[in-house]
């Protein structure tokens, strides 16, 4: 049934026999041993696996931060394996929104400046940046925290700034790496609720986690074990 859904919908991500090998001196260490994966547009997927399973490497490849040793990666039907560094930077900027466990906000910039950052690299005029960033922060409930620096915000608020930042260039794909890993249960729920809402709006959400509770909130779970998709 899932298969029929994928073919009916437009595909967001297609991975074909993705292999990633790291060279450690003389030895080559295989991390991903041939991943085949398909994620449709509008899906809400959790990628699960214990540490060392290769899920972080998989996330880096999906996020265009790393390249596979072999295999093909199609994002929105475009083969990304042939792109150069600058083209990958452009894909990251335009099509992918990142949410990290450690929020990764720039410490000396305000919430507003942090959210404006992706638009700097997109070449959006300054005035539009401010409007769009303000709007994004209002939408995640931080309209009154525009000029606060990260150290003046709680963990949950920082993660919401990061989510606003990830959405501000209107990406097709939201990639969240252990987004609740540094948050308490209460704020975790708020953040997960936000992802749910975003998915309802049509954004494809891919969640990387090792927590079954978190994964359970996604609509599909992909298990990675020892460099392979096991279910």
């Amino acid at each position: 049934m899932m298969d029929t859904m994928v073919t009916m919908r437009d595909t967001m991500i297609t991975l074909e026999n993705i292999i990633k090998t790291y060279q450690m001196g003389e030895m080559s260490v295989p991390i991903l041993k041939g991943i085949d994966l398909s994620i449709a547009q509008g899906e809400y997927v959790a990628i699960m696996g214990v540490s060392g399973s290769g899920k972080s490497t998989l996330m880096n490849i999906i996020g265009c931060l790393d390249r596979p040793t072999s295999g093909h990666y199609y994002l929105e039907n475009r083969d990304l394996t042939t792109l150069d560094k600058d083209e990958l930077a452009y894909i990251r900027n335009q099509r992918i929104g990142f949410v990290f466990q450690q929020f990764n906000l720039l410490p000396r910039a305000t919430a507003l400046e942090n959210v404006m950052l992706p638009m700097v690299y997109a070449g959006i005029p300054k005035a539009d940046r401010r409007t769009r960033a303000t709007e994004a922060l209002q939408q995640v409930g931080l309209g009154d925290r525009l000029n606060n620096r990260p150290n003046q915000l709680s963990g949950g608020q920082q993660q919401r700034v990061a989510i606003a930042r990830s959405l501000v260039n209107h990406p097709a794909l939201l990639l969240a790496d252990e987004p609740t890993g540094a948050l308490d249960t209460q704020t975790s729920q708020e953040v997960m609720h936000l992802f749910h809402d975003l998915n309802e709006q049509g954004i494809t959400v891919v969640l990387i986690t090792h927590e079954p509770d978190v994964a359970a909130q996604a609509k599909r779970t992909i298990q990675v074990q020892d460099g392979l998709v096991v279910g």
């Binding site: 009916m8 919908r9 437009d10 449709a40 547009q41 509008g42 709007e135 994004a136 939408q139 995640v140 409930g141 959405l167 209107h170 097709a172 936000l194 809402d197 975003l198 709006q201 049509g202 954004i203 494809t204």
Partner: peptide, 20 residues
């Protein structure tokens, strides 16, 4: 809550397949 995405988001809704 996040209706702003709907009007500005470029991804089509899942119900409207758009292969090209």
């Amino acid at each position: 809550m996040i209706s702003w995405i709907r009007r500005s988001h470029s991804t089509p809704k899942p119900s409207e397949p758009n292969p090209s």
